[in-house]
Every structure is written in structure tokens, then in C-alpha cells.
Amino acid sequence: MAVIELKNLTYTYGEGTPFCRTAVDNVSLSIEKGELIGVIGHTGSGKSTLIQTLNGLLRPTSGQVLLNGKDIWAEPKKIRQVRFQVGMVFQYPEYQLFEETVLKDIAFGPGNMGLTPEEAIERAKKAAAFVGLSEDFYEKSPFELSGGEKRRVAIAGVIAMDPDVLILDEPTAGLDPRGRDVLLSQIIGYHKVRGNTVLLVSHSMEDVARIADRILVMNSSHAAMFGPTREIFARGAELEQMGLRVPQITKILASLRERGWPVGTALTMEEAVRELLPLLEKGGVRA
């Protein structure tokens, strides 16, 4: 069953003014429960606006957002409930930390849900575990942590609300390779254990290729492509026209295919080796 369904979703900034600009134009699609979706598109393609309509931070100019089959704007007064079900981690989320201790900050969301303080703290502890924050961190001030640790606290703050859908906008932006790898594997781990739906907005095609089931490509306010990761990255030329690229490894194999060698689309190093090995062995050049 679809957890999120968009019907002719349109969002226009500054409607009725001479500066109005349609950021999302007539997008219809549906996302199944338990999927991990990669969202790609260059800056200004409409992807940031699109994800902000999913948890009701922006109200569509026209069209509908259905969450578990129900229009989220059916009762505008209850929009806060939608934000607990669709968790959103913004870019550079560490800038939203404000509490005295790590644990209190993570418990802010659950507290707003109306849970008792004890329940909220329980939730916070579970969420902290997902992002690899040990008990030693609980009573520390979030402001004395390193950049990567702050980021994980902020993500835990959203995970703690136990949303059905988790949206992450560029969660690895600005992290070094080590921090990026750790965070990505934590997100994958969380997704596997909880089995909920995750949307990952990213500029890193390598990351998206590695973890997404399906990919949504936004281009000039439209949903230009939406399909299984392998199929999307097989359309490298089209992506390049939209100012996007494919992972380097995918590009290497695509070039070989163009030149006539029978290799498939590879998303990871392992797949590339698997594709190339039989051919190389046939070439018989192994030393």
C-alpha cells in the first residue's frame, strides 16, 4: 500500500504577486511503505520544495498529498500530527540544537507529541542508539560536540518521533569521508530495523546508487523520472542533460557498453568487477 501519494501537486511561491514562481508543477507519484527513495536534482529543481509539502510545512497551491490514503490538509488544525508521522531532517540540522543536554534535545520532538517526560526520554535513548551515540553523550551539552556528532544528535531528534516516513535533506553534506560512511550505514541500519519509508535527498550519486531502491529525479519543477535505481542510472545521457551525473563506476561501464562490449549497468564496485571479470578472463591477459 502507498504510504505517500501525490496527486497533481503544485506549489507556487508568492502566488498573486509579480514575483510568483512555480517550484513544483503538477507532480503525481506514489511511494510504497518500506521503500528507500533517493531524490536527486540540481539546486532549484524543486526538490526542496517538494519534500517540504510532504510533512505540511508548505501547503500545496493545488493538488493533494495523501498520507496513508488521507489528505493531510483535510483538517488543517491537525497538521502538527502529520509532522510526527513524516519526520524531516533539514540540511545542516545541527544548527537547530538548543537544549542543555543531548538527551533533552533528542526528546524535544517526542515531548511535543504529548508523551510523558519518561516516555520521551525512553524514545530519545532508542534514537540515540540508532545513530551510534553511547550513554556517555546523554548528559553532554550538544554545543561541545564535534560537527559530525552534532549532526547525529539532530537526526536522532527526528528519529525519536518514530515517524512512518523519514525525509533526510543532504544528511552527509560537509562531512568528511569517514563521517559520511558512518552516517550512511547508520541510516541504512535504521531503515532495515524499523522497516519504514526513507527519502534521501542527495547530490552524491555514489551514495544514492549504493542505497536507494528507487530514484526520483526532479528537473525544472517536474518529476522527470521515477523508477528503480538501476534503470535511472542506465539513462546517463538524459541525466547529464539535466545537469546531473551518474556514479563514476556506472559511467565507466556505460562507456565500454557504448564501444560494443556486452556489460550491464553497474551501481557499485562489486557489480562492476562481476560484469568485467568474465570478459577479462576471455581476453586471457591475466599475468
Binding site: 556514479p247 563506476i249 571479470l277 577479462l280 591477459v285 599475468a287
Partner: peptide
Amino acid sequence: QATELTHRLRGMGFP
């Protein structure tokens, strides 16, 4: 990734 691919293949005995 390009560097890693050629490195891996080299490890498998391809020059």
C-alpha cells in the same frame, strides 16, 4: 572509483 576499479583488477592478476 576509477582508481579503485583498476586497483582491484590488478589485485586479481590483471596488469
